[in-house]
Nucleic acid binder design. Structure first.
Lengths: 245, 245
DNA sequence: AAGTGGTCTAGACCACGCG
DNA sequence: GCGTGGTCTAGACCACTTC
């Protein structure tokens, strides 16, 4: 089996070796060099080829498993999996597609104000009631078509935002640039229908389906740094994920 | 900081040591023995305490990170984060979810028939057009309240289902019992609104929001073993997940 | 019996955060 | 400077699948 993946390993790079290797394999799988069903060499052979130890090679392969790109079975080997099929009809990840095509999302800032945390917000973010928050409400559009209404609450002590900044950058980019180190997020996805105001903002009929996402993001201290409530047009957005056992 | 987690390690058990340790910590975190903010001992200390090597102890801690239970930072240490009401991403079915919550779901089998794969279905499952499939359509209720309309396509060569079995078990349980080894699933979530038939089945108003989930599950061979198209009442279902790093 | 991945060990050096 | 997690090595034994 030809598993001729080319890797230019840079041992002086800050990027871990296992990640360099995994990235190379991921690229080879995605561009078709390693078509679905391909059986990779065993990990000892691969480790030898890249002059790595077996544990390091394993760490790279584990990353591919986690990404849902290969399956591994003892006694059998490692095989490239069938990629998920994107159906052109119905719901599609138009947002991702447009981003890949080079379209630029634009953001309209509807509201930006300092507020005190009410009971719900305080509980959600794990902070004291009455704590100072920044509340923002935005509409994100792509090529002039509204895609989402995004409402966020950011604790004032995390970062001080300005309306000017928010017009030119995404919230998360902005927060990262200000030293916020996102580590994990809990999110919940559901569905709802557009009311009068929402339908006007998103340019859809009242009663149209919307994807609802609520998210709490935390930094490396475990401190909540953002609470988000987002509504997406269902005809322009769906959330794809790969679950690995 | 008192990190007095008790573990009865069984080295003769088929359960890996790192998993035994991780499970013990997970239990301690979930039951409050290790409240949020608790700082664990460093991994070398922990390894010594459980008589494990450092890599094995690390593997256990990595599992906790992956589950979104702790954060680790070099130079700082390992800290327990907010109480994990959320469950991690995992392969599951609605039936499994409900069982875990202690509820008693019931299933009504609307349709069960042998069909040949049409173009869409063949592409979705990665099989030949015209291949024999089992098509089923069910309504899942909980305590008498309809929760979901579930439509599935299962290749005939994967498992032979019977209507009788489907009334008493979840589809995934049934398939597992027949030797199907689920390994991964690709799924997509979106939103839609109930049409006349759907609203009648789910006992909601026409135009009510529904959570749409499409899923392709694969076994350890990478073969597609189920294609599902599920509609959930938005007022009774949402999907929670934890994203790490 | 041969080959595979899964687990485990006992070290080593490095990058980072802090005092 | 010190302690922390992050990375990497070079082995070992085992469980499982296939022939």
């Amino acid at each position: 089996m030809a598993t001729d993946v080319q890797v230019a390993l840079d041992r002086s790079s800050p990027v871990p070796l296992y990640h360099q290797v995994a990235t190379a394999f991921e690229a080879a799988i995605r561009d078709g060099s390693l078509p679905p069903g391909t059986r990779l060499d065993n990990e000892i052979e691969l480790a030898k080829r890249f002059s790595l130890s077996r544990p390091t090679m394993r760490q790279a392969l584990d990353q591919l498993v986690q990404a849902g790109l290969v399956v591994r079975r003892r006694g059998i080997g490692t095989q490239v999996i069938e990629p998920p099929v994107r159906r052109p009809l119905q719901l599609s990840s138009l947002y991702d597609d447009l981003i890949e095509q080079g379209s630029k999302p634009t953001t309209q800032l509807l509201e930006f104000e300092a507020v005190a945390a009410d009971t719900d917000r305080a509980e959600l973010l794990g902070i004291k009631e009455g704590s100072p928050l920044q509340h923002l409400r935005r509409v994100r559009s792509i090529d002039g078509t509204p895609l989402a209404i995004m409402e966020n609450w950011v604790p004032a002590d995390v970062v001080q935002l300005t309306p000017e900044q928010l017009k030119h950058s995404g919230l998360y980019d902005l927060m990262r640039a200000n030293g916020v180190d996102f580590r994990l997020a809990h999110q919940r996805m559901g569905a709802t229908v557009a009311d009068a105001e929402q339908s006007a903002l998103l340019e859809v009929d009242e009663g149209s389906p919307l994807v609802l996402m609520e998210r709490v993001a935390r930094d490396s201290n475990g401190q909540a740094v953002d609470g988000g409530h987002h509504l997406y047009r269902a005809d322009m957005y769906s959330f794809e994920m790969t679950l690995v056992k």
